[in-house]
Design a protein around this nucleic acid. Structure first.
Ligand code: MN
Ligand code: MN
Ligand code: MN
Ligand code: MN
Lengths: 234, 234
DNA sequence: TTATTTTGTTAGATATCCCTAACTTTTATA
DNA sequence: TATAAAAGTTAGGGATATCTAACAAAATAA
């Protein structure tokens, strides 16, 4: 049985190596920063988790999850997102309130509790933030990340990042009415000047391809399609 | 903010001094046994909790909760019983499965979570074991304990203990079909020989006053009446 | 390629919670 | 009341998880 702390380290490693970037390894300092502890503290835990064969770690090297560590990390993420969904759907929490409480609830040890919660929520695929909930079998399909420029007309997507971090660009993003986690619908693409018409929060705008290729999004329609395909296979 | 361990000590002290017996103080060894730790361990914690002004404790003396300690202990009991009710009512757990998971859930820190859970469950008064759930204001009405001999005809009660612990008596209890937490209905009292007719698990039996005065029960009809009175006042 | 900066490690400490073994005080018994 | 038993305490130590300060290795820049 893992401690709450050990679970948090595995989850952090999963997020650092699979969700937040294309990397598959994470450094000691980055991990420590992500968890809000000092590098010395993270270093101790890395040695301990390697001992338990949950991570790959060599002195002065980067770390990654083993198959077993990844399995456990995904279980924690599944519990976290199911609890967030419960708080949002059943208890009327707002989307910004759920995370903090889910950080505590994700460590409750009871397989039956999670199975029943999943059932109560009617086996949800996404949490209130639009993130994918890993399946009971431990499958975690990574969201299909692409730029707004690559999105199909008619599709709905969510902004999850930017490629250009310049102040000028970010101010322009703001002016267009976009911000992180906003839902965007691609209405049309003008053949004449390539401008992309989008709708955000009920407001329409047109953006250039130059602008759109710096907005990282995840296509929600593609996510749903993936989910359905997975269900048919099962 | 109290640690999970500190909360468990306060809850144990409440149970030892208010629920399980008429005592208002508990000894170090009894507390340790209740929590499954060694007396030396409990002794350390008693000193720590006294320092925090949550308990009254003097070297070589018995311990009791201060007003503040009692308030916190009752909050933990409230959370525990609300979670048990949730697991039973909403997730289909059986009454014997809920306690273990509630031991973990009772330590989740979120006032909003508890308020909303209470609402979701429609402000329940009793947990799946028939124990009273403290109110949001921290009121914990002690169940009206009496012996089966004192119970009114027509009332429903729950067996919560025995006064005679001899093997002969306990075997007789078993033969009558009674066991801890059984629900008992008092059907009638014969004027001729004072025998009390009861129904347990759909099975009827007659017991003597001598027998009945050794069965400790809590009257469930009285509990409900108390509850309604309290609601009218509020 | 040498120097500097960044990254990662180690040693030594602290806090919490638990233990065993030895001791002390209180209570019960003879 | 003297003694034995029960109850309670203390000393000293282990495990976990955290820190600071000093050090070592790797990466980057000059
Ligand atoms: Mn979250
Ligand atoms: Mn967590
Ligand atoms: Mn319980
Ligand atoms: Mn507990």
């Amino acid at each position: 049985m893992l401690s709450t702390t050990e679970e948090n380290y595995l989850k952090a490693l999963l997020q650092l190596t699979l969700e937040q970037s294309p990397k598959t390894e994470a450094g000691t300092n980055g991990l420590a920063a992500h968890l809000g502890v000092k590098p010395a503290t993270a270093n101790d835990m890395l040695k301990k988790l390697k001992e338990k064969k949950l991570i790959n770690y060599e002195k002065y090297g980067k770390s990654s999850l083993t198959a077993q560590g990844r399995k456990l990390a995904i279980e924690v993420v599944r519990k976290h997102r199911l609890w967030e969904t419960f708080l949002y759907e059943k208890l009327g929490f707002t989307w910004d309130e759920v995370h903090e409480v889910a950080e505590q609830l994700e460590h409750i040890q009871s397989q039956k509790l999670i199975d029943r919660l999943d059932k109560l929520l009617n086996y949800p695929s996404f949490d209130p933030h639009g993130d994918i909930i890993p399946t009971a079998k431990g499958e975690l399909k990574m969201p299909v990340k692409k730029t707004l420029n690559e999105e199909e007309v008619g599709h709905n997507c969510k902004m999850i990042g930017v490629k250009d971090n310049s102040a000028a660009f970010l101010q322009y993003v703001d002016k267009v009415g976009l911000s992180m986690h906003n839902h965007i619908k691609v209405l049309a693409r003008q053949t004449y000047d390539e401008l992309i018409e989008i709708e955000v929060n009920g407001k329409q705008s047109s953006v250039s391809p130059r602008f759109a290729e710096n907005i990282v999004i995840v296509c929600e329609d593609c996510e749903k399609k993936n989910k359905k395909t997975a269900k048919k296979k099962a």
